[in-house]
Design a protein around this nucleic acid. Structure first.
Lengths: 192, 192
DNA sequence: GTCTATAATTCGATAGAC
DNA sequence: GTCTATCGAATTATAGAC
């Protein structure tokens, strides 16, 4: 059953606009136009343009943290943990691709002190992932590599995926996407 | 010998500002302030804010095309070609990290018809890379994978690298970065 | 919730003197 | 090339009636 409250419709329109034009280039007039009413009405839904960005940016960021924390606390091996993190990342991206686009592309538009808060929380997430990579190297599950570069590369391999949901018509099986990305990250492109 | 013409100094300041705040959020007044002169003087260097973006965006894009074309025309195996493409990408990124940041982050601010032109040229580059991946799969050098996902993942693994040059103090040996990323893309993170 | 009207500010760009 | 001065447009946000 598809529920679509006014608030949800508002959010959908706004996130689509921001994804297409960017946060700064998306004006209140653009939003009002796509919702077929006047500019003043936009303020029935939000307090300000800035608060809109802050609200949804930190909300989706929280979801990523909520997903990785129980994995870190588990008793799995590093390899198993990394696999679970990848799967959780893909699951969130598939469920909320527009918010993921916001997270990846628009965080620079935050203002202090929210900007610093965001950067610190993102760094914290990266450090959590890097801890798993480091553990895997130390325990001989992963090859002896530069853990910072490896961590950033893993993240980069996941951060582009939202585009697949927003900019292409082709909807691959989520299980298949998971398998492909997991294989690429763990085993690379080479056959042997 | 470090040459620094006025035009070069201008470009450095502008690209730093855009990287920090984003193109839209960087005003002519910001640029003038950081160059220690008045707003009107900015127009001694450029015709408009938009033309500035167009000029440097297409310039760096051209460099990537100029680097990949001779590799495609060569008689190397797909695996060798991919390796050369990765190295060329890293070399350009190391030489022009600010322009690479512009390429990755600010293309959405182009206006039609330049926007469409940019997207088509970027797609052309991606198709060139995808052709190499496809050839490698067909010839059994690469595992049997989804070539579109693989291509996007390879690109994503390279597109984050400019951050390493702009946002961290640590300067890794370029040869070492090349070796790390090449290994990750070809062999992945797993030991076996 | 929706509208009209408008305040207050900021922005890109130009004119014209030196 | 550099300045002062300013224009015209666009933007976020608010006031107040319905």
């Amino acid at each position: 059953m598809k529920k679509s409250t006014k608030k949800e419709r508002f959010l959908t329109v706004v996130l689509k606009l921001i994804h297409k034009k960017g946060f700064k280039a998306t004006t209140m007039r653009d939003i009002a136009h796509d919702l077929n009413f006047e500019v003043a009405n936009v303020y029935n839904y939000i307090d300000s343009k800035q608060s809109l960005l802050e609200e949804y940016l930190f909300d989706i960021q929280d979801e990523f943290h909520s997903a990785i924390d129980p994995i870190l606390d588990s008793s799995h091996t590093a390899k198993e943990k990394l696999s679970l993190i990848i799967s959780s990342y893909i699951r969130i991206t598939a469920q909320r691709p527009y918010e993921q686009a916001l997270l990846v592309n628009e965080w620079r538009n935050l203002k202090e002190p929210k900007l610093q808060e965001f950067v610190e929380r993102r760094k914290a997430y990266e450090n959590k992932l890097q801890g798993v990579v480091t553990a895997g190297v130390e325990q001989g599950e992963f090859r002896s590599l530069n853990v910072e570069i490896a961590t950033q590369t893993i993240l980069a391999s996941l951060r582009w995926l939202y585009q697949r949901y927003l900019e292409t018509e082709v909807k691959l099986n989520p299980v298949e996407i998971d398998r492909q990305l997991t294989t690429l990250i763990f085993e690379g492109i080479s056959k042997n």
